[in-house]
Structure formats: structure tokens, C-alpha cells
């Protein structure tokens, strides 16, 4: 194997067919950009959902007849459950004060007795199973003694969790479709370059070159095109994220590794695209 020959040929091809090389590079960039956007959205959607999750708790209202001892026992029992981080007690009086603070009315003016039940605010571990299976968690609570009602303030949370699992699937499907589409388009573009050199390829075969020998420079050239295309995409994403973060700080995070993956994906695109494209001509 003559590696030096292949690399030299790849660079030569790179500089000779300038127009088609530029077209290929931008095709790689464009599709890589589309893929990156899909990937960033799905990665950061998980993030937004996790952020919202962290702010939500489960509240259980206690029966009015619960004694102090029962209350402490119940609290210990809930604390014992998987995924429970903390259990805060809110007494009837605290609930009334909260009510007054929120609505401005003194509840005792209209009623002689405080109708608000005491409650526990249950904080869940982040990333706990209980969050995704919140209904199962609620059912377990409801079966415990002296619990009147389980309230999940997080109707929104549930929708988000549902939405995020659905949209995650949508994103995966979208990602795969864009990925395959990109490969197809890039391969076709590269095929144009190779088509222009089909006579040269035929001659190479006539003078004793093996298919592998002919193929290798094209693969290197594809990797090189992918590398340049990937770099352009990397720069574009970097700028876009910068601008976005200036507008909405903290909502979008793109790691250094992501940029590296973009670059590698560009090279992979170039490689596989060339591999498919050259097959027709050998």
C-alpha cells in the first residue's frame, strides 16, 4: 500500500476540480448544519425539561383527624420511599397564612374554622424514576393512611415529560432521516466529481491498477472535503450559539465535545459519501 501516493492524489484532486470540490464542501456543511441543529435541539430539550422538573414537587393533603404521632410516622414512611429527597410539613395555620398571602383574604373572616388541611411537600430526587412514572408514585401515596389527596402541581410537568418523550422519538426519527438524506445528497455530489474522472478511472484499470488502489485517493479526498465542510459547520454553529446565548442566557449549552463530533461527522460523511459514489465506477 502506497499511502503517500493516495494522500498526494487526494490533495491534487482537491485543488484540481475546484468548483465541484467547493460544491461538495458546502453540501457537507449544509447537511451537517441541519443535523447539528436537530441534535442541539434534542440535547437541550432534555435540559429544559430537567430544569423545569427540578422546580416541581408533589403535595399530599393530610386528613384532619391525623394525630401528631401518626403524622410523624407517615412522614418517616414517605421519607423512606425511593427517590424522595425531603418532606416538608405545612401545618393548617401555615396553609391559612399562605392562602391569605396569595389571595389577600383572611379566611377566618368568613369561616369560623380553618378548612385548609395540613400537608406535606415532597421533594423528589433529580432524574428519579418517580418523575417519569409520576402516576405510579402518586398511587402509592394515595394508598397510605391519613392521606386525603395527592396533588401534583406539575400538570405542566407531566405534559412536558410526555412531550419530551414523544418529541425525543420524533427527534431521533428526524435525525436518522436527515442523516440518511445527507449521505445520499453528499454521495451524489461526490459522484459528479468522480463521473468527471470516469475515463481516467477506466484507463487506470487498463494499466493494472486494482480497485482498492483507485478507490483510496477518492476516499482520502472525501475525508478532506468532509473535514473542511465540518470546520465550516463548526464555525457556523459556534457563532449561532454565541448569538443565541446573548439573547437567552443559560437556555442553550453546546459542549466542546459536540464541536469535535461535528468535525468527525463531517469526515465520516465525506468518507462514506465517497465510498458509495466510487462503487458505481469500479
Amino acid at each position: 500500500m502506497n499511502l503517500f501516493y493516495s494522500v498526494r492524489e487526494a490533495f491534487a484532486g482537491f485543488t484540481k476540480a475546484r468548483v465541484s470540490t467547493v460544491i461538495t464542501i458546502f453540501t457537507v456543511s449544509f447537511f451537517l448544519f441541519l443535523l447539528s441543529i436537530v441534535a442541539i435541539l434534542s440535547l437541550n430539550m432534555n435540559r429544559v425539561v430537567t430544569m423545569l422538573n427540578a422546580n416541581h414537587d408533589v403535595q399530599v393533603f393530610l386528613s384532619n383527624t391525623i394525630s401528631a404521632v401518626e403524622k410523624d410516622e407517615l412522614r418517616a414512611e414517605i421519607l423512606d420511599m425511593d427517590d424522595v429527597l425531603a418532606v416538608d410539613y405545612i401545618s393548617k395555620d401555615q396553609a391559612a397564612a399562605e392562602f391569605q398571602r396569595e389571595f389577600g383574604d383572611d379566611i377566618f373572616e368568613a369561616l369560623e374554622e380553618n378548612p385548609l388541611p395540613a400537608s406535606f411537600i415532597i421533594k423528589l430526587n433529580e432524574n428519579s424514576d418517580a418523575k417519569t412514572n409520576i402516576n405510579d408514585f402518586a398511587q402509592k401515596l394515595e394508598q397510605m393512611p391519613n392521606i386525603d389527596e395527592v396533588v401534583m402541581h406539575q400538570g405542566a410537568l407531566q405534559i412536558l415529560v410526555k412531550f419530551s418523550s414523544v418529541s425525543r422519538v420524533v427527534m431521533y426519527v428526524l435525525f436518522v432521516l436527515v442523516f440518511l438524506g445527507s449521505l445520499f445528497m453528499i454521495s451524489n455530489t461526490i459522484r459528479l466529481i468522480i463521473f468527471a474522472r470516469r475515463k481516467i478511472i477506466a484507463t487506470m484499470k487498463l494499466v493494472g491498477a486494482t480497485d482498492a488502489f483507485i478507490r483510496r485517493p477518492f476516499l482520502f479526498e472525501g475525508i478532506l472535503q468532509g473535514l473542511v465542510g465540518g470546520s465550516i459547520t463548526m464555525a457556523a454553529i459556534y457563532l449561532l450559539v454565541k448569538i443565541f446565548v446573548l439573547q437567552w442566557p443559560g437556555l442553550l449549552v453546546v459542549s466542546k465535545e459536540f464541536y469535535l463530533i461535528v468535525l468527525l461527522a463531517g469526515m465520516l460523511f465525506g468518507f462514506i459519501g465517497s465510498l458509495f459514489a466510487i462503487r458505481r465506477f469500479l
Binding site: 500500500m1 502506497n2 501516493y5 491534487a12 484532486g13 484540481k16 474522472r197 475515463k199 481516467i200 484507463t203 487506470m204 487498463l206 494499466v207 493494472g208 491498477a209 486494482t210 488502489f213
Partner: peptide, 21 residues
């Protein structure tokens, strides 16, 4: 003739030697 039009005379001839390593 079937020469490789994308390279000079030297490389046209050296090609068959590159092929055999």
C-alpha cells in the same frame, strides 16, 4: 493513447510503478 489528462507526463508513467508499489 488513453493518457491520464489530470497529471503531467512524468506522473502518467510513474502511475504504473506506483500501482505495483
Amino acid at each position: 493513447f488513453k493518457l491520464l489528462n489530470d497529471r503531467d507526463v512524468f506522473r502518467n508513467i510513474s502511475f504504473v510503478l506506483e500501482v505495483v508499489g
